[in-house]
Nucleic acid binder design. Structure first.
Lengths: 233, 233
DNA sequence: CGATGAATTGACCGATGTCAAGTGGCGTGG
DNA sequence: CCACGCCACTTGACATCGGTCAATTCATCG
C-alpha cells in the first residue's frame, strides 16, 4: 500500500479537479496519511477546522450533535469522498463530527498548506466553492424532505441514496458495502429504531428488500423509488 | 434615492468585505438596480444562477419547492442581506425561489462580471466561500432542530431568530418589521397554520407574546428562549 | 358597510414515539 | 469447538403530538 497508489484518489477528487498530473503528484506529496480505528473520531464538532480529508479506505459517518446531546447522522462517506472542506477557510470550527464506522485510512492536508495551494491554483478555490454549493443543495433537499414527507418515504429515499452512493451489486441484489445498523438508519432519517424495523419488515413481506444483519439487501430498487414518492401505499 | 446612497449597503455587505473604498465605489458602479413588486419573484428555483443580489429596501422570502408542489420557507431576508451567491459559479441553477414580501429594491450583479471581480480581488471569492459555509452551518442547525425538537420549540426558535435578525424595539415590546402571516410561520417551522395559531394563543395567555395582525409582538424574549430549549412546559 | 382573506377554535384521527418483552445471530472465552 | 452472554433486532401495546376538516369570528380594504 505505497503512497503513490493513492494518486487516483486525488486525480478523481472533486476539490483537486482540473490541475495537471504533476500538480496532483505534488499535492499527494504534501498529504499526511491519517488512520482511524473503528469508532474512532477523525473530526470533532466544534474544534478548529484545520484539516481537509479524503477517505481512502473504510467508511465514516458525519454526525451533528445538539447542545442537548441528541445526535443526527448527516451522511455517510466512502472511499474517494472528502470531508472537512471548511478547513480551506481559517477561523472556522467543524460543524460536524466524523466517526469511523470501520477502520479508516485517509489523506489529510493542513489548512495553511491548502491556503497556499489555493493561491497557486485558484481553481481549487472554485472547486471548494462548488463542493460547498452541492452540499448546500443536498441539505436543502433533505430539509424539504423532512418537512413534507413521512418516515417511510424518507427511509426509502435514504436507502436509494445509499445504494446509489455505495451500492455493490451481488447475485442476490444490491447491497450497501458499509455496515449500517437499524439505529444508524433511524438517526439518518430522523426517527426511532423500532419504527425503522417495522417499516423494513413490512417491505420485506412485499419482497422489495431483505433485512440483513447490520445491512439491507435491495431487491427491487425501482419499487423503492416508487415508495419514496407515493404518499402512503 | 440616488445610486450613491447605496454605498453603505456595499461597504457593509459580507461578500464585498475587505476591499478598499474606491473599489467599493467601482463595484457599486457595476450594479444594476432591480425592483420587484409585492409577491413578485426575484429568483426562480431551477433557473440558471446568473445574478447575485443584495436587498436594499423591503423584505423577501426564500422558498424551496418540491417536485410534488409543496413548499418550504427557508428564510427571510432583509435590507443589507444578499442572496443568489451561487451565481459566482457558472453552470449552476438557483436552489430556491426568492419572493418579495413587500415591494423590494435590490442591487444586482451578473455572474460574468462577478467572475472578473473575483479574479481581480480573490478576497471576494473567499468571502463567498465564507458566506456559503455560514449558510451551511445554519441549515445544519435547523436540520438538527427539525429532527429532534417539537413544533413549539421550533416556533420559539424561529421567532427568536426573526427578532434577532429583523427585530425592531417599540415601547410595547420587540416587533419584527416584516409582515409575517401565521401561514408563513407555519411554512417556516414546518407545521400547519392551525397549529401555529394554537401555540401562539397559548403563549399569549402566558403573556410571553401578543399575537397581532400578520405579525407577533414579543414581550419576553428570554421566556421565548427558554421555551425553545425546554422539552414541554 | 359589505366582501375578502386572515385567524381562532373545536372535534377527530392517524402516524409515530415510547416502553417493554422476547428472539436470535455473533463473538469471546473456556 | 462449544456455550454463554451480549447486542442487534423484532414485535406488541399504548399514549400523544400534531395534522386534517370545518365552522366561526375578526380585521382590513374597497
Amino acid at each position: 500500500m505505497s503512497r503513490s497508489s493513492f494518486l487516483p484518489i486525488i486525480t478523481q477528487s472533486p476539490v483537486f479537479q482540473g490541475v495537471s498530473l504533476p500538480t496532483h503528484q505534488r499535492i499527494l506529496s504534501f498529504a499526511q496519511i491519517v488512520e482511524a480505528d473503528q469508532q474512532g473520531f477523525l473530526i470533532r464538532q466544534g474544534y478548529p477546522a484545520t484539516t481537509l480529508y479524503i477517505l481512502v479506505h473504510g467508511h465514516a459517518r458525519l454526525l451533528h450533535l445538539a447542545h442537548d446531546g441528541s445526535q443526527v447522522l448527516v451522511r455517510f462517506v466512502g472511499p474517494g469522498q472528502e470531508f472537512g472542506v471548511i478547513a480551506l477557510l481559517s477561523g472556522f470550527e467543524y460543524p460536524v463530527s466524523v466517526q469511523a464506522v470501520e477502520a479508516c485510512v485517509t489523506l489529510a492536508w493542513q489548512g495553511e498548506l491548502l491556503a497556499q495551494l489555493v493561491e497557486e491554483y485558484p481553481l481549487i478555490g472554485f472547486n471548494a466553492l462548488r463542493a460547498m454549493a452541492l452540499q448546500n443543495q443536498e441539505l436543502l433537499d433533505r430539509y424539504q424532505e423532512l418537512l413534507t414527507e413521512h418516515v417511510a418515504q424518507r427511509l426509502a429515499q435514504a436507502l436509494s441514496r445509499l445504494t446509489e452512493q455505495m451500492g455493490h451489486t451481488t447475485p442476490d441484489g444490491t447491497l450497501v458495502d458499509c455496515p449500517i445498523s437499524r439505529e444508524d438508519l433511524a438517526e439518518y432519517v430522523g426517527t426511532t429504531l423500532p419504527t425503522v424495523s417495522r417499516i423494513l419488515s413490512q417491505w420485506e413481506r412485499c419482497g422489495v428488500v431483505v433485512a440483513k444483519w447490520k445491512s439491507v439487501l435491495i431487491l427491487r430498487p425501482q419499487d423503492l423509488e416508487r415508495l419514496a414518492t407515493q404518499p402512503q401505499p
